[in-house]
Amino acid sequence: MMQGVGAIYLREMRLSKRRFKRAMAGMAVAPILYMIAFGTAMGEGARFDGHTYLEFLLPGLIAMTTMTQAYGIAIEINIARFYFHIFEEFQSAPISGAAFALGEILSGITRALGGVVIILAIGWAFGVTIHTGPWFWLAVLLNAFVFASIAVALAMLISSHGDQSLVNAFVITPMAFLGGTFFPLDGLPQWAQVLLHGLPLTHAAQAIRADAFGQPPQWIHFAVLAGLGVVGFILALKSVDRARD
């Protein structure tokens, strides 16, 4: 089992290392633009729970980046599967589907952690520092686990690269904007709040933001993320086995 996990993980890390500069630039551009555009637009006057907008935004960007980087492995898996046919090399190797899924999920989590470090560095460059205690990192890890698991499951279930773009357009991008990243959900109508609390990113953003603001953790967020992570992981395991034609 572990030999397979290690091989899959190491392959992804070697590829990431080779594409490090491109990947880092890709991770940094959007958050910098958000910081400049929204930070400037909102100015110093706007306060959220006693914090400036940039202080409010930074934890949201961390949640969003964790999601996009962890979920980003779906694209890598798709390229490997549909264009380079590398997935066949794993399918014909004596490793279980669980080993493949776990290796890919760990690589997604690693990418997400790299993204968090970059966002924290960007925040620091903008003069914004936040508290990053154990609950902050636990929320980041759970969020990454959820989206990396979903990424593996979807990458196995879809049948073309075009389908992947549809998932991005209709699920990931709306979630990035509506999951409590850029604005507090308190001001929304009750029905919208209920709806948006069905999104994992909403719970991740609130859990990360609470620790960033030095507030005590709310268990419900961690429980929801852990539950969704387990469901996503089971889906990933089942979908890897279904990927054989």
């Binding site: 392959r11 590829l15 080779r18 594409r19 490997a80 380079f84 046919h85 590398i86 066949e88 090399e89």
Partner: peptide, 9 residues
């Protein structure tokens, strides 16, 4: 039948 190597490795 088709090449299934990692081109970037």
């Amino acid at each position: 039948q088709h090449i299934n190597l990692d081109g970037d490795l």
